[in-house]
Amino acid sequence: MKIIEVKKLGVKYGGIGVLSGLSFDIEEGDYIGIIGPNGSGKTTLLKSILGIVRPDNGSVRIFDCACHKLRCHHKAKIGYIPQKGQIDPNFPVTVRETVMMGRYSSIGLLRRPTGRDMDLVIDALREVGMEGYIAAPLGHLSGGQQQRVLIARALVQQPEVLLMDEPTTGIDTPTQHSIIKLISNLQKDLALTVLLVTHDINMIIPYVDMMALINTKLYAVGKPSEVLHEKTLTEIYGKQVIVTTKEGGTYVIVGDYHYV
């Protein structure tokens, strides 16, 4: 079943188009990687789906509603993990409080969290392997641990769709892999629809079912093997891109042999 429908989407900031003419559909249970260089509009696309950014042209619909008109009970079904670095490490908040925030909109105005909300918080922390840190200040955790807590915060909403913005930036490489594995396992176990934004193509090739290549426009969408073409990638990145296969896996090398 179609869960997200992007139709001729155009977004402008101060008259400058950052997205234009994007059209694609996402089916329930899809696991899709959104790929593009920095500044290509990936975050803007996620924010349009969240309804935080309004389309200037075209439309974005989720659960068959226009995204910027979503009601709270629909919003709770979308778990959002923003690009890290937007979180102040000194902010006085514990892991428990952070995850509980995911319950707030379901709890509703003028009500307090109950024992059931607390149970859901503990379950979510268990899913990401962070149940031992429930009382810790968020700022005391490592980057990877904070990312896990933010994933728990999204899970506690009991979402159907997960939108993740660069979940591996600013995290060391082994931890990056464990985070991507965690997301992939959750996607399978909970039958989630996942949109994973990243500029790191190689990291996600083995995991995702689909990829969308964007740079203001949509260049390609489909299975990784179908969309990873040297010509398209070279056009998007503005540098020579090489696609190779090694030990059965596909790798993309951009420009001066920097992995992207």
Partner: peptide
């Protein structure tokens, strides 16, 4: 007192709060 949890959330991260329906 009435909006404490919402104020806590928007103070922590306004965009995340907005995205989750606050």
């Amino acid at each position: 007192y009435l909006f404490f949890k919402e104020f806590h959330f928007i103070t922590f991260d306004e965009e995340m709060a907005k995205a989750s329906g606050i």
